[in-house]
């Protein structure tokens, strides 16, 4: 079974994503900001990360940069899910190593489809 880490400072969003992802029986781990997520990654093996952009302490882009610096998470798929439509931030996110950039609100089934396909790709390579 695959584990997905949801990083968002809003507990509502974390709960919502949790419910959506549980439909396909993924295991969910939650973190409330980038710092918290880095800590969680220290003791949970994660297969995919869904991360918000604007968060306190460590924002999404900073987090992804840190993530890519870590040997174990160099290739882990990352979806950035944010309200921001700012093109510059979008570019920054891709530069940092985000695999996919989605805008809130996202249709649940669409998100599930994207998660599935990103995880599938992973398997093909590995």
């Amino acid at each position: 079974m695959k584990t997905i880490l949801v990083v968002d400072d809003s507990p509502t969003i974390r709960k919502l994503l949790g419910y959506i992802l549980k439909k396909k029986s993924y295991i969910i781990a939650e973190a409330e900001d980038g710092l918290d997520a880095m800590e969680k990654l220290g003791h949970v093996q994660v297969d995919l990360v869904i991360v918000d952009l604007n968060m306190p302490n460590m924002d999404g882009i900073e987090f992804v940069k840190n993530l890519r610096d870590n040997y174990y998470y160099m290739d882990t798929p990352v979806i950035m899910l944010t309200t921001t439509k700012d093109e510059k931030l979008k570019k920054d996110a891709f530069d940092a190593g985000v695999n996919m950039f989605l805008n809130k609100p996202v249709q649940p089934n669409f998100l599930l489809y994207k998660v599935e396909s990103l995880l599938g790709e992973e398997e093909d390579h590995g």
Binding site: D9, S10, T12, I13, L16, D52, N54, M55, P56, T82, T83, K104, P105, V106
Partner: peptide
Amino acid sequence: NGIFRAVHTIKGTASFLG
């Protein structure tokens, strides 16, 4: 920054919930 983030968060979540 805190205010901005809070309003941003509410915006994001509210859009999800319609």
